[in-house]
């Protein structure tokens, strides 16, 4: 069953877009819900930094990266120049390199135009959601693409709305600030498919905390996850946790 999905293609390639769009949009809802408070908050901050809703929307469209946009706006309002802002953005978003590499396993045989369109929407959230779905049946690159762009639409809309006056929305309403964390927690549970994954996740968590405390910025994500994945590879090569090996492939 896993074999059919290796190419990321649906079994029936002539499937119409209707159900594909429906599935992608439905799967995107926790992300959209989670983006709303962050996007509004971003819009409010950006507006206070002197950006118009048009400028905010354009940034969300061109960059589409939450933390980098927050940092970008604070650097712009602090009067930072082009190069420092661009270099910082690059560092902050380097983690997507790992995410796209991971997704690539499921997207073989798809033409570069589609891949380029897909790449635009790779975020922490869409990566985690799509990767989980690719392991399930009934998920293919078109549904993943719809999910990416739905999330992107929600992000642009909520940042622009924030720029128009998101400060009128009460902070903490419905506990919505916790939506993305709850989503990540559940997606993490889905990834714990055997003892080795539990141990790798624990190592990544500890390393992430230690490096987050020691190194400024968010490079701890890349450092901790590459180190933990490398540890996992060593464990597997050393013959630990043999039982889970079959399960994962």
């Amino acid at each position: 069953m896993q074999e059919e999905k290796v190419n990321g293609l649906s079994p029936d390639r002539r499937e119409r877009w209707g159900p594909v769009i429906k599935d992608g949009v439905i799967a995107a809802w926790p992300i959209c819900l989670g983006y709303a408070p962050i996007g509004l908050a971003f819009g409010v901050i950006a507006q206070k930094a002197g950006l118009s809703p048009l400028e905010i929307g354009l940034m969300s469209l061109l960059v589409f990266a939450g933390s980098a946009q927050f940092i970008g706006v604070s650097m712009i309002s602090a009067g930072a120049g082009f190069m420092p802002i661009v270099i910082t953005t690059f560092m902050v978003n380097l983690r997507h390199l790992l995410m796209s590499s991971s997704l690539a396993v499921y997207l073989r045989g798809i033409n570069s135009g589609c891949l380029s369109l897909f790449a635009y929407g790779v975020t922490d959230e869409s990566f985690a959601m799509n990767l989980t779905r690719f392991r399930d049946a009934e998920w293919d690159w078109r549904r993943a693409l719809v999910l990416n762009h739905t999330a992107n639409g929600a992000w642009i809309a909520s940042t622009v709305a924030g720029g128009y006056g998101g400060q009128f929305i009460p902070a903490g309403a419905f506990g919505i600030d916790y939506a993305l964390i709850a989503m990540f927690l559940c997606l993490l549970v889905f990834q714990l498919r055997g003892m080795i994954y539990v141990i790798i996740a624990a190592i990544a968590g500890v390393l992430a905390v230690v490096s987050a405390l020691v190194i400024p910025g968010n490079s701890y994500i890349v450092i901790a996850s590459t180190a933990a994945a490398t540890a996992g590879l060593f464990f597997r090569r050393a013959g630990f946790f043999k039982k889970q090996e079959r399960e994962s492939c």
Binding site: M99, L187, I200, A201, V206, L213, S225, A229, G232, L233
Partner: peptide, 22 residues
């Protein structure tokens, strides 16, 4: 391929745990 197989669990944990306790 094996290394990339560990990336999702690692990244999710690295994203969430610092958020919870720092």
């Amino acid at each position: 391929v094996e290394w990339l197989d560990f990336i999702p669990a690692s990244i999710l944990s690295a994203l969430v745990v610092p958020y919870l306790i720092t």
